[in-house]
């Protein structure tokens, strides 16, 4: 088999390299080989044409949903260009910093003005939730996905875990609404004691959205407590529920 990483440019542009290590080593190669980076760019443009040629009008309702959703999604700040980009910017004789800095400042200003500082914090959580959706799907679809359920005093909770992915997702229903200033907090409990995990509040129907928890690792139990808003580093109340996880 050819060891020349260059031949991977086509598969890479078609998103047909699924092995992350192989992809990463090709990307490293691109950083060192300007010609390859240029070729890959052209092939990616070409692949995009395969896509735009099969355009199809989506249902009209999609527009309303997207416009509604962007009203509550916080935008990312510009990425600070990696060192490899400096040459390119130097070549075009454009100073890099003023552009990045003014972009950042403008984006930050726009975000602060539209959303306000308090909203930003909530928004951050919402954003993470949204990004977590695909991770939730990945855990649920894992071949070794295992479900642990627990019900106690009208509260039912479920953890779907995958050892192969080292991930777990928490679902619950029946949690009582909390006053402002309080939050539910999840804990991963292992040999080192309880580790702080996600904060959550139930929706009006008493459900919490699916939450991807931190690394499964040597977690043996998942617990939930009520904590002051913002969460705690250690549990400050006794747990409402502790769910033992099956051993590996």
């Amino acid at each position: 088999m050819s060891r020349d990483p260059h031949t991977l440019a086509g598969a890479y542009a078609l998103h047909a390299v699924d092995d992350p290590a192989e992809r990463a080593s090709f990307e490293e190669h691109l950083d060192r080989c300007a010609e390859c980076a240029e070729e890959t760019r052209g092939l990616r443009e070409t692949a995009a044409r395969l896509g735009s040629a099969v355009a199809q009008e989506p249902p009209a309702a999609l527009r309303d949903r997207v416009l509604a959703e962007i009203g509550v999604v916080r935008q990312l700040p510009p990425a600070v260009s990696p060192v490899a980009d400096l040459d390119r910017h130097r070549a075009s004789r454009r100073p890099l910093w003023p552009r990045v800095v003014s972009g950042l400042a403008a984006a930050a200003l726009a975000a602060a003005v539209t959303l306000g500082v308090v909203a930003l914090r909530t928004q951050d959580l919402l954003d993470r939730e949204r990004q977590a959706n695909s991770r939730v799907a990945a855990v649920l679809a894992a071949p070794d996905a295992t479900t642990v359920s627990s019900a106690d005093g009208g509260v039912s909770a479920r953890v779907v875990m995958s050892r192969s992915q080292g991930t777990m997702v928490f679902f619950s229903a029946g949690l009582a609404p909390l006053p402002d200033g309080k939050t539910y907090q999840l804990w991963r409990i292992g040999p080192a004691g309880p580790l702080p995990d996600r904060l959550t509040r139930p929706d009006p129907s008493g459900r919490t959205p699916p939450l991807v928890l931190g690394k499964l690792g040597d977690t043996t139990q998942v617990g939930i407590t009520v904590e002051p808003a913002g969460g705690s580093a250690k549990p400050t109340t006794s747990p409402l529920m502790v769910m033992p996880l099956p051993p590996a």
Binding site: M1, G10, A11, A13, T46
Partner: peptide, 16 residues
């Protein structure tokens, strides 16, 4: 595998 990689690349180059 090597053939597929090569065909994806030269196919895309020709499309480009």
């Amino acid at each position: 595998l090597a053939t597929v990689k090569t065909r994806m690349r030269d196919g895309l180059i020709r499309m480009r």
